[in-house]
Design a binder for these strands. Structure first.
Length: 426
RNA sequence: GGAGGGGUGGCAGAGCGGUUGAAUGCACCGGUCUUGAAAACCGGCAGGCCCCUCGGGGGCCUCGUGGGUUCGAAUCCCACCCCCUCCGCCA
């Protein structure tokens, strides 16, 4: 959620952001401003009536105590009319306030000045590339490797649950476990405190990080208990401090968590969803930062490095994209995507998304800190990044390290976790 | 699931129909003292919203949430949520 004051004082910037992000109708701004004006007018009047009522009440109390019942009765009748007027004003306010709130929730975060302006994903900027992508010639895609190794069972997953819910079997399951432990250990070493979060959250939490109302279709809902399966650990972990007032000394807070992630991913097709490319349930280690507003862009670069390091340790070629305005998404002010090279498919796969939300989530979550000098509370900045999402890493790993004899070599850093240097052909 | 107790400012904790937006302590901020620090002492210190003749003044709302009673509610009533204790169930 953006600051209504920003919208009042610089509506042009907000309109521009909506257009640049291709996130809705810029006329929203004018509707909100009109509502805001009415709301303030009504509130001023309502406040005045309440003030008068409060004064009368106090006087009535005194009159009763002094035994001047007649005078008191007279005042009492006056409160009746005032209350009627107040009621009408309140009724209108109760219409306006939620409407304004819901409109305001539809305004996207403003892009940071360093974000390139663009019209489509093609305008994302490649800012860094690491490693030598293998050419696809003679290489198998991961789903073929996984099948011949017998380590991922897509068909039985589809039978038991549905497509996009694979079983990992034998070395496949062990590989998942090894990667999770490896990612978590690395995060711990970099100063992130490990958490194990709930996998279901309530509506308030889903709203806090921005899943509600705009991305509701993305989530599985447990209607009976009004809970949502988390699409990412970002949701529970960032909401950990929701509605709290932190001390400046507490910042920065760095957290990490492994969780399965559940995504409905309605409307996907073809090669996009082949194999491990897109699943309804997948594993991910998430990195979350809660920081002082002045340091959030340094923290963003640090977060990016922490995520990149993992791919380097795994020896997987990747590139870093700076997302342009059109592909930035609703909540972030700035975002990098890390894409790993999938040699078996000859394409890049997103394995991490590293974002600075500035105070956009903090405002929704009402998460503030008290400055050292004791002055009024300020909103924190929140960031997060995957470190990393497993399936596409597994895909890249199987394809990159496949051996002509059918086995898959295990990267050095992972050997202690997997307890083997090769995934054997079955 | 059943019975009982409870949810008050950053934290702890009083208040239980009318100068209580809330005692007290801790924390925090400013100052005195000190070579410096600690201690002691003095002062300040909840948040949000709105208005104005605006580096100052004023008003409104908020004591888990929502509703009700009343001229007036943190205080009384109802519903819901959450926490604790005991019982039940259980990985």
């Amino acid at each position: 959620m953006i600051d209504i004051r920003l919208l009042r004082h610089e509506p042009e910037r907000v309109r521009e952001a909506i257009i640049l992000k291709q996130a809705g109708d810029p006329q929203l701004v004018d509707r909100i401003l009109a509502l805001d004006e009415e709301r303030r007018r009504l509130q001023t009047e309502a406040d005045r009536i309440r003030a008068e009522l409060n004064t009368l009440s106090r006087q009535i109390g005194q009159l009763f105590q002094q035994g001047q019942h007649q005078q008191a009765e007279e005042f009492r009748t006056r409160t009746v009319q005032l209350k009627e007027r107040l009621k009408a004003l309140e009724a209108r306010l109760e219409e306006i306030e939620p409407e304004q709130e819901s409109l305001l929730l539809q305004i996207p975060n403003l892009p940071h000045p360093t974000v390139p302006i663009g019209h489509s994903p093609a305008d994302n900027r490649v800012v860094y590339q690491w490693g030598e992508p293998r050419t696809p010639e003679g290489l198998q895609p991961h789903w073929e490797i996984a099948e011949s190794l017998g380590i991922i069972d897509f068909a039985r997953g589809a039978k038991v649950t549905g497509s996009g819910f694979p079983f990992y079997v034998g070395w496949g399951a062990r590989l998942q476990r090894a990667l999770i432990a490896f990612f978590l250990d690395e995060a711990n070493q970099r100063g992130y405190v490990e958490m194990e979060p709930p996998l279901l959250v309530n509506a308030q939490s889903a709203r806090g990080t921005g899943q509600l109302p705009d991305k509701e279709d993305l989530m599985y809902v447990v209607e009976r208990d009004e809970l949502f399966l988390i699409p990412t650990a970002e949701v529970p972990v960032t909401n950990y401090y929701r509605d709290e007032l932190l001390d400046e000394e507490d910042l920065p807070i760095r957290l990490c968590a492994y969780s399965p992630c559940f995504r409905r991913e309605a409307g996907s097709y073809g090669r996009e969803v082949r194999g491990l490319n897109r699943l309804h349930q997948f594993d991910k280690v998430e990195l979350v930062k809660i920081v002082h507003p002045e340091t959030s862009y340094e923290e963003l670069e640090g977060l990016r490095q922490d995520a990149e390091r993992l791919l380097q340790l795994l020896g997987l070629p990747y590139r870093v994209l700076l997302m342009c305005t059109a592909d930035l998404g609703f909540t972030p002010a700035k975002k990098y995507d890390l894409e790993v090279w999938s040699p078996g498919q000859g394409r890049w796969l997103e394995v991490s998304s590293v974002s600075n939300f500035e105070d956009f989530q903090a405002r929704r979550m009402n998460l503030r800190f008290r400055p050292r000098d004791g002055s009024r509370p300020r909103f924190v900045h929140t960031l997060n990044g995957s470190g990393l999402a497993l399936p596409r890493v597994v895909a890249a790993l199987l394809e990159h390290y496949q051996h002509p004899d059918g086995r898959v070599r295990v990267p050095e850093a992972l050997i202690p976790y997997l307890g083997a240097a090769w995934i054997p052909a079955s």
